[in-house]
C-alpha cells in the first residue's frame, strides 16, 4: 500500500474539469435550503398559533407590545447591508480589494442589527416578556432568537471573509458562499418581522 503512506498534499490532483459550480457554493446552498425549511417550520407554527388567538386580547394581558416601529428601522439597516454586499460583489469582480469597503459596511450594518436587537431584548425582558411568561413570549424569543443565532454565525463568516480579503486570499467561491449565507439571514428577516411583530 504505497499510496497509503502518501499525505493528502503529496497526492497530485487528478485531471478533472472545473466544476460548473464550486463545492463550497453547492454546500452552502444545500445548508441554506435546510435552514429555510427550519424557519418555514417555525413560522408556520406561529401562523397556526396566531390563528387560534383570533378574538382574544392581543398582546395578552400583562405582556408588552412588540416594538414594531423601532424594529422597522433595524429591518431597514439589515436590508441596506444586503444591498451594500451586492455592490461589494460587483466591486470584487472588477478588482478584489475594492470590495473591502462595501464588505466592511455590510458587516457594520449587520452588527448594528444584532446589537440593536440585543438592546431591544433587554428592554422587553425588563417589561416582563420572557420565554416562560407566555406562549406569545416563547414564540417571540424562539423565532427571533433562532434568527439572531444565524445572524451572529453569518457575521462571523462575513468577518472571516473580510480578513481573507484584507490579506488578498479570498476566492470567488468563498465570497459567493458567504454572500449566500448572509442573504439568507437578510431575506428571511422580513418574513419573521411581518409575521411576529404584526
Amino acid at each position: 500500500m504505497e499510496s497509503a503512506t502518501l499525505t493528502d498534499r503529496e497526492r497530485t490532483e487528478p485531471p478533472r474539469r472545473e466544476p460548473a459550480v464550486p463545492n463550497c457554493v453547492i454546500g452552502t446552498i444545500l445548508f441554506v435550503g435546510t435552514e429555510i425549511m427550519l424557519f418555514a417550520g417555525l413560522i408556520s407554527a406561529h401562523v397556526i398559533f396566531m390563528s387560534e388567538r383570533i378574538g382574544e386580547l392581543w398582546p395578552p394581558p400583562g405582556q408588552p407590545r412588540l416594538p414594531f416601529e423601532e424594529t422597522a428601522i433595524n429591518t431597514a439597516a439589515l436590508m441596506a447591508s444586503g444591498i451594500v454586499l451586492a455592490f461589494g460583489r460587483l466591486a470584487y469582480n472588477q478588482q478584489p480589494r475594492r470590495a473591502l469597503l462595501p464588505l466592511g459596511m455590510a458587516l457594520a450594518l449587520g452588527m448594528f442589527f444584532v446589537g440593536f436587537q440585543g438592546v431591544e431584548w433587554v428592554g422587553l425582558i425588563g417589561e416582563g416578556l420572557t420565554l416562560q411568561s407566555s406562549t406569545y413570549g416563547a414564540f417571540f424569543y424562539t423565532i427571533v432568537g433562532a434568527h439572531a443565532l444565524h445572524a451572529v454565525a453569518a457575521l462571523i463568516c462575513l468577518a472571516w471573509a473580510w480578513s481573507r480579503l484584507w490579506r488578498g486570499t479570498l476566492g470567488k467561491a468563498h465570497f459567493d458562499s458567504v454572500q449566500i449565507f448572509w442573504y439568507f439571514v437578510v431575506l428571511v428577516w422580513p418574513v419573521i418581522f411581518f409575521q411576529v411583530y404584526q
Binding site: 425549511m37 417550520g41 407554527a45 416562560q132
Partner: peptide, 23 residues
C-alpha cells in the same frame, strides 16, 4: 428538505420540556 420543520418542532418541544414554555 423534510427535516427542517421537525428540527423546529424539536427545539420547541425541548423548550416545553426544560424551561416550561407552552408551545
Amino acid at each position: 428538505l423534510s427535516v427542517g420543520p421537525l428540527i423546529a418542532g424539536a427545539i420547541m418541544l425541548l423548550f416545553d420540556q426544560t424551561i416550561g414554555t407552552g408551545f
